[in-house]
């Protein structure tokens, strides 16, 4: 049981307090631009009765869900190819290449996409050669999605790859030998075997997209704002961190529910087969 200790101690020391602070903060008041400790429900009432809060909430949920589905689907063929078609050397290099982007700031990468997506950007330049466009891509939901993909795709491919690489090749082989088609093998053998990893990857993708403010801000033009942008906006109204805390707690609870359902689903015992 001593293995439980390091994590427990660290999180108790350095995470539980900030969380408690956050919860307490949501009941504080702001007077003359200073946060005053207190116990008032006004922040909760105020945020929860605002239409824009719920608009932002459902919009963010939707964006994160789309991002999760799109990223998972786009990542899978890549992870599949690397897991089943590539040599171990190629796979290892691919893995490192996928982790490399993290070492070039996400901010820089998001900023870079502006050059591609702008009205007079690289993509529209290319389109105009063929007589198309210009298409509005920057400051749209499409822009936000490109940003989310930039953030999540490498991570999701890595996590999917980790789980696909451990799928027992003998089982796949057996399915083939029994005359199972390639597509059927993927969906009926490989995906169920790698379910845990695929779900974990999707969950991280959802969490990252849900909380990210860089993409909806720099590539989506904050139109409409997501919850993380709402947090930043709220703090700009004269130290309204308590109200930002309300938004934050709502986000945490939502993500907790999503994450726990996902993990429960992922690790649920397979009853069939």
């Amino acid at each position: 049981m001593s293995f439980a200790l390091p994590g427990l101690l660290w999180q108790l020391l350095f995470f539980v307090f900030p969380m408690m602070f956050l919860i307490a903060l949501s009941f504080w008041l702001v007077k003359n631009y200073r946060m005053v400790p207190g116990f008032e429900s006004v922040n909760w009432v105020k945020m929860y009765t605002r239409g824009y809060f719920w608009d932002a909430y459902f919009y963010t949920l939707m964006l994160a869900a789309i991002s999760t589905v799109v990223t998972s689907i786009l990542a899978f063929p890549c992870a599949y190819a690397l897991a089943f078609k590539a040599s171990p050397t190629v796979r290892r290099w691919a893995m490192f290449l996928l982790i490399i982007p993290f070492f070039t700031s996400y901010l820089v990468r998001a900023y870079s996409w502006q050059i591609f997506l702008g009205n007079e950007g690289i993509f529209n330049g290319l389109f105009s050669v063929f007589g198309f466009g210009p298409y509005k891509m920057l400051h749209t939901m499409f822009g936000t999605m490109v940003g989310y993909l930039t953030l999540c795709l490498p991570l999701v491919v890595v996590l999917q790859l980790l789980s696909l690489a451990n799928v027992d090749k003998n089982l796949v082989e057996a399915a083939w030998n029994l005359g199972c088609g390639r597509v059927r093998t993927i969906f009926q053998v490989i995906v169920p075997l790698a379910k845990v990893g695929l779900v974990v990857a999707a969950t991280f993708c959802f969490i990252l997209s849900f909380g990210d403010f860089v993409s909806p801000y720099y590539l989506g033009g904050s139109k409409p704002p997501t919850l993380s942008i709402l947090i930043i906006d709220t703090t700009k109204s004269g130290q309204q961190w308590p109200r930002a805390a309300v938004v934050a707690i709502t986000m945490i609870v939502t993500l907790m529910i999503v994450a726990f359902s996902a993990v429960t689903y992922a690790y649920a015992r397979r009853t069939r087969q």
Binding site: R50, Y52, S222, S237, G238
Partner: peptide
Amino acid sequence: IPKQQSLEDWNDFWSEYKN
């Protein structure tokens, strides 16, 4: 800063406008 309304009112409206 707004004199007759509270700063939060203005900010609230701005969030509504963005949404």
